[in-house]
Design a protein around this nucleic acid. Structure first.
Lengths: 123, 123
DNA sequence: ATAAGTGTATTAAGAGAATTAATACACTTA
DNA sequence: TAAGTGTATTAATTCTCTTAATACACTTAT
């Protein structure tokens, strides 16, 4: 389901949060779909169940999943996380844009890269 | 010269690196100018000299300063760090731009924010 | 020459966070 | 009833950051 990067210096639980988050955002894990159980994902990643539990707790806190007692954890509907996600990403993006300006990166270069990433169309 | 943020969860040496980097990039510390000594900056920030030493080692490694044995550390000329800085920032910026797209942020919003940050002019 | 100031290196110890480990509990489903 | 779920607790371990105390080679000013 996901693969850990051992060169990454962040805590494992943060990596798990980030990677599962992206699976949800990209729709690879669809709304209502059952998440892997804490124990099974821990087994799969050769990691302690507590570590996965911590990641799940944070994902629930951020609205990406919800839990039904005794049944498991499930992907939350998009309205629960979409706005927060956009705000969070946009704040980081603006900060990096300011840093790019500071470093002397031209406005035109950034605009070109945006077109490359988004494509030329309106959306 | 700089102020530490104790709410910031990053290591102190990283904060020092980041803040001194910005002073150099913004020209507040000019090329050739003498950096504060390891001991004096440690004293000013109420921090161990080893912590500052670590920050300086990293700053030197990244090309922001150079050392003259027995004399001290000095701000390196712009050509030593400018290109690396731009590449580093731009890579992070592109990654966040992709994330913004993933999260459903529109191209138009990003373009508007760029204009706000850079201003309307050509540069 | 001497003293004070520079960066650098080393070794040890402390503190805090992340992680592992071993259980236990309440709940649901087969 | 048994197996599978998330959750909670407590302890020990590991790792990084940080502090601490020195020491060394070098330069500058006295």
């Amino acid at each position: 389901m996901i693969v850990l990067d051992y060169r990454d210096k962040r805590p494992i639980y943060e990596q798990v949060v980030e990677k599962l988050e992206r699976l949800v955002v990209n729709g690879i894990l669809a709304t209502g779909e059952k998440m892997p159980s804490v124990r099974s994902l821990a087994m799969e990643l050769s990691v302690n169940p507590n570590t996965i539990q911590r990641a799940y707790a944070q994902l629930e806190q951020e609205g990406y999943l919800y839990t039904v007692s005794g049944r498991g954890s499930f992907v939350a509907p998009e309205r629960e996380w979409r706005e927060n996600k956009q705000v969070e990403v946009l704040q980081g993006w603006q900060d990096l844009t300011r840093q790019a300006k500071e470093a002397g990166v031209s406005k035109e270069l950034l605009q070109r890269r945006i077109r490359e990433i988004y494509g030329e169309g309106s959306q």
